[in-house]
């Protein structure tokens, strides 16, 4: 990770109200230069609304937002010059070829024609899309479109890149390509902020994450810190008959934090506990001991929807 010192994004008490839905309430966080910051949460948590405010295409009803030291209220144009956006719906222009999509987008930034063509060409090469450059957007596969959208977000050589669910709906190969690409950007010292509901993605890419639900941040920290604070080191996970759940809970409720999802029980083991002895006391064929993950934190903090 590059040395993180300067604050690139600072949000204080952001609130966003749509007609009768309070999408984001009292949101505060900051993002440091050179880090990858993840916003995690279930669908409808307010991630995309938050992203739209950070992209300056939506104004908060209350609160202050500073991006790259500029006030998002009245300096949107200056912010947008320096930020790359990879939106969830790709928004590629179906009237044009892959190449023209990049070229036209570059022109919106006021990049001179020749330079715009050069950058479009370079990015197509970088994304392995050279053979697709004359294809229309509808002729391209989902993975190709996603790579084109990534390329588009980099056309203005931004120092800060915002990605809204960059790998949703992609097959594993493309997902790995995107991850490796984002890791490359981090190495170059770019600041990334992304939303995702894939915990694996967040754990792999993010230096710090914020878990959101119902328009609020429930917890914020490095994935490791969060796992240790909310879950512990290891998890004993087992499947049992629904009728047995109460029995096991009565046995372990006092000692361990736990979580129940349908007929699956997860016991969170703290340092110093002996997982072996616990496991011996459970009669289940589907029992495992594994390292605690961000997914456990996520399900614990925002997983009520699944347990009901």
């Amino acid at each position: 990770m590059a040395q993180a010192t300067r604050i690139v994004i600072e949000a204080r008490g952001l609130k966003k109200q749509f007609e009768n839905v309070l999408a984001v309430k009292d949101l505060s966080f900051h993002v440091l230069e050179g880090e990858c910051f993840g916003l995690l949460g279930p669908n409808g948590a307010g991630k995309s609304t938050t992203m739209r405010m950070l992209n300056c295409v939506s104004q908060p009803n209350e609160g202050d937002l500073f991006v790259l030291g500029l006030d998002a209220k009245n300096q949107t144009q200056r912010i947008q010059h320096q930020v790359g956006v990879v939106p969830q719906e790709d928004g590629l222009d179906p009237d044009f070829s892959a190449f023209d999509n990049l070229y036209i987008y570059a022109r919106y930034f006021g990049i001179a024609r020749r330079e715009a063509k050069k950058r479009a060409q370079e990015l197509l090469r970088l994304m392995n899309l050279e053979d697709e450059q004359d294809k229309g957007v509808y002729e391209m596969s989902g993975g190709q479109r996603r790579r084109l959208t990534l390329a588009r977000g980099l056309i203005n050589e931004p120092a800060l890149i915002m990605l809204d669910e960059p790998t949703t709906g992609l097959d594993p190969q493309i997902r790995h390509f995107v991850w490796e690409y984002l890791e490359g950007l981090k190495l170059k010292g770019k600041t990334l902020i992304l939303t995702t509901h894939y915990m694996e993605e967040a754990e792999r890419l993010c230096d710090r994450v914020a878990i959101m639900d119902k328009g609020e941040i429930l917890a914020i920290g490095t994935p490791r810190e969060m796992i240790e604070t909310y879950v512990g080191q290891e998890v004993v996970e087992f499947v049992c008959r629904p009728s047995e759940i109460d029995y096991y809970l009565s046995k372990y409720r006092e000692t361990y934090e736990y979580q129940v999802l349908n007929n699956k029980v997860r016991l969170f083991i703290k340092e110093g506990d002996n997982p072996k002895s616990i496991m011996e006391g459970i009669d289940s064929e589907m029992i495992t001991l594994r390292r605690a993950s961000l997914e456990d934190v996520f399900l614990k903090l925002a997983g009520y929807k699944l347990s009901n």
């Binding site: 295409v57 947008q80 956006v85 939106p87 719906e89 928004g91 222009d93 009237d95 919106y108």
Partner: peptide, 14 residues
Amino acid sequence: HQKTFQTILFTPVQ
């Protein structure tokens, strides 16, 4: 349908 304007708004074009 094409969300062309929504995409343009991510750029400095107002």
